[in-house]
């Protein structure tokens, strides 16, 4: 396991602090995934508050436990892509349409502005953007129940 040449910690304000190999200290460091969809656990960049890359993590699985926990915790608090488990109701098949959905983060409703806001990531994975820019993920189209699939099918 390669030991990274930087240290990461959390300060009283809840933000991450990175101490680089040369001793410089950066506050408010933000971890960013390079491929949030295609390869979420690879290529994580630690970016300073003013947008410059400070450090690079090749694979999240190969870094020391403490560092990984910090990074994952921070990622979790920034990432918000609820995964749709079931579509309970749609207000209309014409857009804009309000959907009542069950997600892995609880029940929510979203407003779909147009069919083009449903993006196909792969044959069975869809990303639905709502009017306020929140992205809802449908990880596996075929894993949805029949009623949801039927509703969704009307928009595809």
């Amino acid at each position: 396991m390669p030991t990274p040449d930087f240290r990461l910690s959390r300060n009283a304000f809840g933000s991450l602090v990175l101490t680089a190999a040369d001793g410089s200290v950066h506050e408010g460091v933000v971890p960013v995934r390079s491929f949030p969809m295609a390869a979420p656990r690879e290529g994580i960049s630690l970016v300073s508050a003013d947008g410059h890359e400070l450090a690079w993590i090749d694979r999240l699985d190969t870094v020391p436990e403490a560092l990984r926990a910090l990074v994952e915790e921070e990622l979790a608090s920034r990432e918000f892509v609820p995964e749709i488990r079931r579509i309970r109701h749609v207000s209309s098949f014409a857009t804009p349409s309000t959907w009542e959905v069950e997600t892995d983060r609880g029940d929510a409703s979203l407003v779909l502005k147009g069919e083009e806001d449903i993006r196909r990531l792969s044959a069975d994975t869809l990303l639905v953007a709502d009017t306020h820019g929140i992205h809802f993920l449908i990880r596996d189209l075929r894993a949805l129940d029949k009623a949801s699939r039927k509703l969704l099918d009307r928009f595809l």
Binding site: A12, F13, G14, R78, E79, F80, D130, G133, I134
Partner: peptide, 25 residues
């Protein structure tokens, strides 16, 4: 805010006291 999620943070000089999250609507 970031990616459609807004955050309010209550801070004093010594650190963060509380945090609230909401969707941008």
């Amino acid at each position: 805010d970031h990616a459609g999620v807004g955050t309010l943070e209550l801070q004093d000089g010594t650190g963060r006291k509380a945090r609230w999250r909401y969707t941008l609507g």
